[in-house]
Design a protein around this nucleic acid. Sequence first.
DNA 1: ACCTGAACACCGTTCAAGT
DNA 2: ACCTGAACACCGTTCAAGT
Lengths: 187, 187
Amino acid sequence: MSSSAREAILAAAKRTAQAHGYGGLNFRDLAAEVGIKAASIHYHFPSKADLGAAVARRYWEDTAAALESMLAENSDPLRCLQRYPDIFRKALESGNRMCLHSFMAAEHDDLPDAVKQEVQTFADVNVAWLSKVLSAAALAGSEQSEGRARAIFAAIAGAQLLARSRSDLALYDALIASYRAAGLLPA
Amino acid sequence: MSSSAREAILAAAKRTAQAHGYGGLNFRDLAAEVGIKAASIHYHFPSKADLGAAVARRYWEDTAAALESMLAENSDPLRCLQRYPDIFRKALESGNRMCLHSFMAAEHDDLPDAVKQEVQTFADVNVAWLSKVLSAAALAGSEQSEGRARAIFAAIAGAQLLARSRSDLALYDALIASYRAAGLLPA
DNA sequence: ACCTGAACACCGTTCAAGT
DNA sequence: ACCTGAACACCGTTCAAGT
C-alpha cells in the first residue's frame, strides 16, 4: 500500500495529540514510532500545520462516522443520547487520553488557522448530531435543541477534562450521573 | 521592594500560562517581559517546575481570596452562585484567556508532580466553595452538594473551553444560560 | 542579594540533496 | 515517489563573573 506510511503517521499523531496536544506533537518521536526518519514525515505532510490539520480532520471524520453508525444501530434516539458520554469515556479508558477538540481548544492561540478550522468542525459535527437526536427524542423543540446540544457537548468535555486531571474514571462517571440528576442529560 | 522581580515574573507567567499553558512558558520571553535576562529567573525559581508550581499555587490562592470576598460581600448565597460564572467570563474578556486549571488539566501528562498538586488544589478550592454555597442556599443536601458542586465546576470549565475555541463571549453566555435552563445552575 | 554573558546539551523544523 | 543528512533556531540549565 502506497499510503501506509501516511496512515501510520496519522494514527500515531492522533494518539499523541490526544495526550500531549498539538504542541506535544513532534516529528522525531512520531518518525521513530512509524519506523522512518523525522525529515521523511515532511514528504507526507509539508509542515506541522499540515499534519495537525490532517489529524484534526481525520478525527472529526472518524467521530462523524461513529455517531452515524450509532444512530443506525439504535432505533431509539433516547438510547443514543444515553450512550453519547461513552465516547468520551473511551478516550479516558485508553491511557487517560482526551478529546482532541478539547486539547486543541485550550491551545487555540498557538494553532495554525487550518487546524483551528478542523477543530471547529469537530464541535459542529457533535452539536449537529446531538441537536438532531434531541429533536428526534422530542426532548427539545427545534429552536432550543441546538442550544441544549451545545450545553451537553461543553459539559461533557468539561467532565472529561476534570476526570483526566485526576486520572479518575469514577469521577467522570459521577459527573455524568450528576448531569443526569440535574436534568442536563436524559436519565 | 526586594520581591518585585519575583512578583513580576509570577504575574507575567500567570498571564502567559493562561493563554499558552505550562508548555508555552519559556524563560527567555518571560525575562524579556520583566526586563531581566533569562538566567536571572533561575535565581528566583531554580527550575521550570518550581516556577510552574509557584504560578499554579498563586493562582488558586488568588481565586480562594476572590471567592471568600464574594461571599463576604453578598449575604445571599444564591447571589454568589449566580455570580460564579462571571469569574470564568472575566478570563475570556481578558484576551480570550482561560482558567489555568483547565489548561493544565489538558497538559496533565506533561506536568511535574509539584505542579499537578497545585492544579488539584485549585479544583478542590472551587468545589469546596461551591459545595458550601449550595448547602447554604439550601439547593442541595449536604450529601449531594459536593457532587453538584463538581458538576457545576466541570460544566463551566467546559463552557469556557468551547467559547475560547471560537473566541466567542456570546457563546459562553449562551452556554451558561442553557445550564440554567436545564437546571444545572440556579436561575 | 541580585543579575548576567557565555556555553552546553538537547530537540523540533527545514531544505537541499540523495536514491 | 520516497527518504535523509546536516544545518538552523530554540530552550532549559549551569556557572563563573559582575555589581
